[in-house]
Design a protein around this nucleic acid. Sequence first.
DNA 1: GATGCATGAGTTACCGGTAACGCGTGCGAT
DNA 2: ATCGCACGCGTTACCGGTAACTCATGCATC
Lengths: 339, 339
Amino acid sequence: MAKRGGSGLEEIARAAGVSKMTVSRVLRGGSGFSEETRAKVMREVDRLGYVPNRLAAAFGPAGSSTLVGVCVPRFTSSLFGALLESLNATLARLGYQTMIGSHGQIPEEEETWLKGLASWRPAGVILAGRRHTAGTLDMLRSMGVPVVEIWDLTTSPLDISVGFSHFDNGLEMARCVLARGHRRIGYVGALGGRETMGRQRLEGFRAGLAEAGLNLIASEMLEDDSGFYPGFYGTETLLSREGNLDLIYYHDDEMAIGGLAFLRARGLDVPGRIGVAGWGGMEAASVLPQRLTTTKVPTARLGKAAAEALVGRLKGSPVQDVTVVPTQLVPGATIRPDA
Amino acid sequence: MAKRGGSGLEEIARAAGVSKMTVSRVLRGGSGFSEETRAKVMREVDRLGYVPNRLAAAFGPAGSSTLVGVCVPRFTSSLFGALLESLNATLARLGYQTMIGSHGQIPEEEETWLKGLASWRPAGVILAGRRHTAGTLDMLRSMGVPVVEIWDLTTSPLDISVGFSHFDNGLEMARCVLARGHRRIGYVGALGGRETMGRQRLEGFRAGLAEAGLNLIASEMLEDDSGFYPGFYGTETLLSREGNLDLIYYHDDEMAIGGLAFLRARGLDVPGRIGVAGWGGMEAASVLPQRLTTTKVPTARLGKAAAEALVGRLKGSPVQDVTVVPTQLVPGATIRPDA
DNA sequence: GATGCATGAGTTACCGGTAACGCGTGCGAT
DNA sequence: ATCGCACGCGTTACCGGTAACTCATGCATC
């Protein structure tokens, strides 16, 4: 039917013989009505199949929106997928809806997305990444809503920050592979010169090497998004330039798996001849003949923590500015055994 | 500052010395104003940093929403990820925003999601899958908005349908592997007894075998979501029950890749001893030593076509009820060579 | 018996944008 | 000269829900 307006508070109110406001009070579970009235109203609500109108609710008084904007780099990554799943589920459970976008690691696209989001007057915003344009910052300020930056920890969060340090992830991995005796080390990355979080890991990794007085021997920065095949041909390119490496650190596990495939195709023994380290703890690594050396990222915990921090702030509970969600380095069998 | 209301049409109107309605007309690019007025209004819009309020716009007259609901089975699949990317980008380009949810192949969860969506009065809905509860159907009807069912073609779409036939995908694959001489065939699937689209493919596959008077020798239906490791141990279980198979068809490529890993670990020659066929055309297969036999799904085209069909309907253009997005069977090297 | 207060309602105003309508002006058609 | 109409713009009335206010009633208190 879709008759104009479906049925609103007004209709329920008439049917129950009370006023609109009373119906509103009953539905929002406040007080100021008798049990008898509540029962009468609820009966009509069920009978008429009332569908609330959040548009109207959010439209009215400021701060009554239940919409949360979420922006991630891309949908086509198992990590971000799991993150979104967790964010979405947690926010839904807490009574919020999400409006999700992706920015492809381009800060300007994040700004464009935010501009669109702002016109829906959301209650809060969750952003993956710490690179924002000046326009984004302006807009966030003028929206005046809580902002949760996730994925990468920021030393000075805009508002709330939930995640871990990619720099430390890289640093820790460097120390680990150095301890196993690897010395001639290369890197294969993605997304070219952009300020991705992979770059933070790389910088941490370099710092770790520097502690031992070492440098990366060679690195290959692909322009592509991360993926299995980019890992494969990135490795090929890297080795064609510098064949004498004893370990390659990768942007993430998918690329590491692609790299492993190349190394195996070349007949290079892993880890005897060359070691491999990835990042992310992705499911694809579970079927490798060797356990992949990687850093596991608790995507589900991260999403849940971020959602709860945002809602906590919205409800007025005290919320930590920075929440660390710990990652776990898994040494695996693609680097040399512990001495 | 985030002063109450930011700045609305009213404020622009006052600054430009015109009425609210004129500002609205200018911004919506209609007619009914002079060039001079337009310039004056636009100047103030820029100067005051006007942020439109879609809440108010969508809230008013019926059918003026620019919100589209999208529900997919899950985020953690490279195929659905790519689909969402494409849907989101296309809809954004056409001036629409998306509200995305996932249902985990559980029709009741789709209904729950839809109930939440309905309260935002969306202009349209895009659903992946054809299994809907009665409640979902009721709600869709009473919402009175266009519905696009994607991914699987339905013989009788609720409204608009964009996709391809999973049954035909399975059928085609069966014919292909039969033509290559495979006869003792097994299947490894996911998500147990649920009515997934993988099940449609399986039924098509069975039908193809039946054409040659054959049956599946064995099949293993896991309860898990699809994934690499489920493919690995599903294959182990299947072969432990029935070791004498010469081909396994998988729910999708991820599972097929997991299966290949198992077969290689066992030292079974592929395709000499046993063949492997997957589905989806997933990127992970790109680094296998052999090209995987699979069916490529054009996720980006599908998302674009679905978004355009929905917007076409919303704008009143004539739109086909059913749009077929063709898939492509890639024979690959994991089945026996062409005789 | 007058006062105070809690309780259970109804009333009003408003959020920001848009449809529908109204009104004056200027111009071409008759 | 008059009529009709298109144009440019202003006015009004909503859309559905909620905050803030009002008001009547009943009951305990002094």
